[in-house]
C-alpha cells in the first residue's frame, strides 16, 4: 500500500521544506504533526512531507532563530511541542517567497513558452 501511494507523491523541491514550514506557521502556533497535516491538506494531498525529516528541519530552523518552541498541551490533552514564527522567521519567509516566485516564474516560462503574450 505504501509503495503505491509513494509513487503518487510529488517530491518536494530541495529547500522548499523550510519555506513551507514557515508559511504554515504564519497561521499561528502549531506542533509538528499539525504542520505536516497542514502542508498535506493545503496542497490537496499532493505534497507529502517525508514526515520524519520535518523534525531535523525544525531543529535547524530553531538554531537559525527563525522559529521558537515551547511545550504545551494538544487538543486531546497530550504534551506536545508548539512552534511559533519569530520576527527573523518572517523576514526569512519573505526572502524565500520572493526567491521562490522568481524561480517558479522562470520554470513556467520554460515549460509553457506558447502561453506568453
Amino acid at each position: 500500500m505504501g509503495r503505491v501511494k509513494r509513487s503518487a507523491r510529488t517530491e518536494l523541491l530541495p529547500g522548499t521544506l523550510d519555506m513551507l514550514i514557515l508559511k504554515s506557521l504564519t497561521r499561528g502556533v502549531m506542533h509538528g504533526y499539525g504542520i505536516a497535516q497542514h502542508i498535506q491538506q493545503m496542497s490537496d494531498e499532493v505534497l507529502q512531507v517525508e514526515e520524519g525529516s520535518l523534525y531535523p528541519a525544525l531543529q535547524r530552523m530553531q538554531l537559525q532563530g527563525w522559529i521558537e518552541s515551547e511545550w504545551g498541551h494538544s487538543a486531546n490533552n497530550r504534551r506536545a511541542r508548539f512552534y511559533r514564527l519569530t520576527r527573523a522567521g518572517r523576514k526569512q519567509l519573505g526572502l524565500a517567497e520572493s526567491g521562490f516566485e522568481r524561480v517558479l516564474g522562470a520554470i513556467v516560462r520554460v515549460m509553457r513558452p506558447q502561453s506568453e503574450p
Partner: peptide
C-alpha cells in the same frame, strides 16, 4: 544558541524522542 543546546543536549534528545513518538 549552540552552546545552550549543547548543554541541554540530553534533555533535547528526550524531548525530540517524545515529539516524534507523539507524531
Amino acid at each position: 544558541r549552540h552552546v545552550l543546546m549543547r548543554l541541554r543536549r540530553d534533555r533535547l534528545d528526550d524531548e525530540l524522542r517524545d515529539e516524534m513518538a507523539l507524531h
